[in-house]
Amino acid sequence: MVDASVAKRLVQAIIDNLPEPVPGRRPVHTIGIGVKGEFVASDVARTYCIAEHFNGQPVPVSVRFSNGLGGLEQHDGWSDVRGMAIRFHLPDGTGSDLIATTLGEFFVRNVADFFEFAKVAKREPYQRRHWLLKIADFLRLKVPPRNPYPNETENVDAGALRYANRHRFSQLGIFQVGSIGAPESYARASYHAVHTFWVTAPDGVRRPVRFSWQPVAGVRNIDPADVSRDKYLFKELEDRLKRWPARFMLMMIIGEAGDALDDPTKPWPATRVRVVMGTLTLTEVPKDQEAAGERISFNPCRLAPGIEASNDPILEARRCAYEVSRELRDGCPFRWRPDNANSK
């Protein structure tokens, strides 16, 4: 069980590694855009999960897309993990959240790992590698570290690599972070909820599942040479939605006995049963961005009855850390539904 003091330390560890504090804002995924839309479950969704938003009736949603970096600087063109947090607004006034990122797997298994990672992966000065060292890398058939992005003077890359070299469980996540790139549009990236959840079917069968959003427009990154494009994602999304709605399919992957249920660093094989749970249609970027995205406090454990969090220690830590973060920035508290109160 993650207590409040641990959650505060977690959030503080993140804040301590920021280039500068951002009071009143999210410490990471600081830059984001709120979008309105609607989710319609597929015909089969209700046979797998009794949660209200899977019963087939259209459900209004609030979505916040974000860049992963903490701080107020916006660098859309930099290679970075992007976020897609969604709240399904249920008919009784409560909600169910699903928080996903473009990262397929996380890089730490539990809170202890995270604190160690935070200790090792501190921000360090980052400079262009000398050309002689690059040639030495080429001769050793190694890829040299990338050149700094425009105006980038420090980052956590070296520390993260040191951590990955010491911990094989983290290698996949950290490798993915290093090669993730920048999307052409927030609507042209896949987003993964990384944790395992349990869903309950009408016949009472409980299944371990993982969720991913897949863009109907397809996945596409910008040319890595375009790193200097700092601000294009918000406008691209606004322009896109003025022309036509953007759609995502919600895919639910069903785990099997032996799959990692409580470890977000371990992927599930592509051979698992995959169910289309519904379609998300994004229609509008509201003018009032404070209400549409910044004031909303998402939480990965705010779940409608029918969906439960697994025992994944990172998921549990996020539940508390998100609340601490909300309190710090005076975010909008959300009413937990009474039958979900034990998750609070």
Binding site: D137, R140, L141, K142, V143, L161, A164, N165, R166, H167, R168, F169, Q171, I174, F175
Partner: peptide, 17 residues
């Protein structure tokens, strides 16, 4: 081997080649 190990992730391209 499990953690702690001493890998060099930057050698992945060579290993693949």
């Amino acid at each position: 081997a499990v953690s702690p190990v001493n890998d060099d992730l930057t050698l992945l391209p060579r290993k693949l080649v």
